[in-house]
Design a binder for these strands. Sequence first.
DNA 1: CGCGCGATTGAGTAATTTCAAATCTAGTGG
DNA 2: CCACTAGATTTGAAATTACTCAATCGCGCG
Lengths: 186, 186
Amino acid sequence: MQQQLRAHLEKIVALTDEEFDVVLAHVRERRYKKREFLIQEDQMVSDAYFVVSGLLKLVYTDDSGRQHILSFAMEDWWESDFRAFYTQTAATLSLQCVEDTAVFCLSLESYHALCADLPKLQRFFLQKATFGSIAAQQRIFSLLTTNIQERYDQLLQQYPALVQRLSKTMLASYLGVSRETLSRLS
Amino acid sequence: MQQQLRAHLEKIVALTDEEFDVVLAHVRERRYKKREFLIQEDQMVSDAYFVVSGLLKLVYTDDSGRQHILSFAMEDWWESDFRAFYTQTAATLSLQCVEDTAVFCLSLESYHALCADLPKLQRFFLQKATFGSIAAQQRIFSLLTTNIQERYDQLLQQYPALVQRLSKTMLASYLGVSRETLSRLS
DNA sequence: CGCGCGATTGAGTAATTTCAAATCTAGTGG
DNA sequence: CCACTAGATTTGAAATTACTCAATCGCGCG
């Protein structure tokens, strides 16, 4: 597991053994079972999570009980209710296991400590945030400009492995359509 | 103008006069007229822009000539086709003046230089990227979970000043509906 | 006064949702 | 090996929502 985190970090910044030890001192490993919650609505968000193995979904449940999936997180992705995490307020979203999942947890204090102590890590997070924000804008773009058929095709093309691991119901919820409509495509 | 940029930076990080001089050495001031383009589709993106005064729109024009507005940028906002800017590839979006606009331009080299020379600036950009990414996720959230009426109401509530400055046609394009549908609301 | 542009209104059409029913699938126990 | 069940998926049909295209309205400006 540690090797995987290190490889992930080193895709962006090279680290000495000592530096990586500092990182390890700030994260802790946890395992969750399918359907377990890492974050629940209305509760405080202690950590951001790095997914080592498994699959998570970030979900909003509206007043009428409908689920809206904002994103999935699979191996090598960071996920949390980042708004709640950074502002230390109650979560509006929940983060739940689609499969059994192993993660590294990083608290906000540890995040700040790492950024302060290791400028390299700050650069790493800057790059992650930058490309995270670009990816989010691509999703907005796709929601604004394409119909469901195209959106589904794009997803299939971009993340074929992910689509395999999801139920149609979850896919529909992610794409922003009813499962019946998704079922009627192509 | 310089004072405004400094105040903007100092909302997040305190700067000495010397540090701010370093920043000034890396940006240049420009003014554009209403309807002028800062970025055009298919061209290289030299800069990210800090809006001092005026109003910009970030637009995608699809094959059938329809305009989709991804975002607006008013005073104190940073804007660009960030995907194209960071990867130094051709723009897929265009950035155009809704009003006469004054900006500071920051090239990618200068951005990297500032991050390297002034750790504070890196912290500034990390925070901007972080909250930019959170804001983008809020927009995805709103596109997935709310109908047009609610989306319009939220926008009115959140940015009343912005709505004043936009035509209904642009608002509709930003909200992802036809102008006729927007016109029929409440 | 008349032109031009943005906004609104109307009517028909297309896409999507909703709710209900039918079908399929994987896992369980006899 | 087969029947049974629970859950997911698909299908059907009506209702709703939004879009399109065309016509009209309203207003500022020369």
